[in-house]
Computed example of a mutant assay.
Amino acid sequence: MTQSDVVFHRPDTIAAALSILSSAAPRPAIPLAGGTWIMRAALRGEDTDKTFVSLANIASLHSIEKTGGGLTIGAMVSHAALAQALGADPAHAGLRMACAASANPAIRHRATIGGNLCSDGFMAPDLVPALMALGAMVTLQAPSGERRLPIADFLRGRGARPAAEILTHVHLPPPRGTAAHARALLRQAGEYPVAVVSVLAGCRDDGTCQSLRIALSAVEPAPRRWETLENALLDRPLDPEAARDAAQARIQDLHPRDGVDASGWYRARLLPQLVQRAFADLTRPTAKGDPQ
């Protein structure tokens, strides 16, 4: 590949970026966020002869704002910046840990929340399950207008999205409950996790669970909620051992994937322990004030 094979645009506004993405050209243009997934495209055997539209110069995509008790996060906010910006609210503890523990420090300062969501072939994102547990939504903008939809709906349709559409913001609802995030690595920090569990739990005064979201990543080809486990643990106390046993009994609900990093059976074997670890974090005496 020569330098002339890559065409690079750096617009200053969303409107300008959409204009480039929707223009008739010899080859389609694609949005570029932090670039950490694209940089490894050649290793995956993908075509790197592309036209890129960098979103780095669009100021509104770098902001984090409080809106209606929740947060609106620009798609270009990096993992490191989001980890630093999230407060000590226990509902954000899982997302805060997901941001602070993903990959390595160099990647965390470049990888973005929007890129983590839009990398269709990336099977082991940390932020996505944490966002699913929080009930996050995304805003997508196209020349025809704007739409907002839940994370799960976006993930199901992201492979068929119009080319001239940009994920501009992620919206977190007002924080309620306590969250935790547990991940398993084969060897050392900096590599992709082989299994991830994110949990958000809301409890009654008697300690029983009245609301629960459990999301997985790296286990199957795409992140998803584990609804059968959620239903099994609702209206029960937050007990780490009971959560582990319930997860073990429901492994058959999943279809763990084989990969070069780990076999499907191994990912499945790790899940009950990760669920136990996440629930142990939820029940720690310091969980409500500990930023992890």
Rank of each mutant, 00 (worst) to 15 (best):
Q273G: 12
T36W: 09
A85Q: 08
P143H: 13
Q292R: 15
I107Y: 03
A287H: 10
L61Q: 05
L71H: 05
P129D: 10
T51S: 14
P105E: 12
E191P: 00
G45L: 05
A83N: 05
A91H: 03
A56M: 08
R96G: 08
A103L: 09
D261K: 07
E191Y: 06
E191G: 07
T139G: 12
G68P: 00
A163C: 04
P175H: 11
L233D: 03
A41D: 13
M1P: 00
L43N: 10
R277D: 15
M137Y: 03
H181Q: 05
L127E: 10
E220T: 02
A59R: 09
D153R: 08
S22V: 01
K50I: 11
P31S: 15
P240G: 12
D235F: 08
M137C: 11
D12W: 05
E227F: 04
G87A: 14
R96L: 13
P28Q: 12
I20S: 10
R148A: 15
T13E: 13
L167P: 00
H109L: 09
D206N: 13
S144I: 01
A81N: 08
H62K: 12
A124L: 07
L282M: 08
L167F: 08
L234Y: 09
G159C: 06
L282N: 04
R187Q: 14
P26K: 09
P105D: 13
R244S: 14
L274S: 07
N104Y: 14
D49P: 00
L55T: 01
A218C: 05
A25S: 14
L82K: 01
W37Y: 12
M39Y: 05
